[in-house]
């Protein structure tokens, strides 16, 4: 079992439900957040082992999230951004701000799992 804490910031319930199910199966302990404010609250309580976040979220965008984690919390926790197709400029900014990887919508949960495992192996 992996037993790693994963913060999943996704406001789309459909995707969140599917990912929650699949990632739990893989042995992750999931903290699910529906919007940017929840993410911020959660992060100030506890920093997870890895973060998966949508770029476009209400209140607090994915980019602001990276900035917050890297600069305010001074944390190196790996971050994977989820972006929709055609948002390439945002992806570039995400990398510049310190994201570790990104995955495009429509997401294949299996692909996300492979990417997660790869990043967690490295660290």
């Amino acid at each position: 079992m992996i037993n790693k804490k994963l913060l999943l910031a996704e406001d789309d319930e459909l995707l969140a439900t599917l990912l929650n199910f699949r990632l739990k199966k893989e042995g992750y302990i999931i903290q699910l957040c529906r919007d940017g404010r929840e993410v911020k609250d959660q992060l100030t309580i506890q920093i997870p082992d890895i973060i998966v976040s949508d770029i476009m979220m209400p209140y607090f965008s994915g980019l602001e999230l990276i900035d917050f984690v890297r600069n305010d919390l001074k944390s190196d926790v790996p971050i994977i951004m989820v972006s929709s197709a055609g948002n390439e400029e945002n992806v570039l900014s995400a990398f510049e701000l310190g994201a570790n990887d990104f995955i495009s919508k429509p997401i294949s949960p299996s692909e996300l799992i492979v990417r997660l495992n790869r990043i967690l192996c490295k660290t």
Binding site: D12, E13, L14, T17, L18, F21, R22, K25, P109, S110
Partner: peptide, 20 residues
């Protein structure tokens, strides 16, 4: 398939899909 064959999950997703 993505739901690993779990029909209950697919049902839940369909429900969410309709709501969305």
């Amino acid at each position: 398939e993505e739901c690993l064959g779990k029909i209950f999950l697919l049902e839940e997703l369909v429900l969410l899909y309709k709501q969305n």
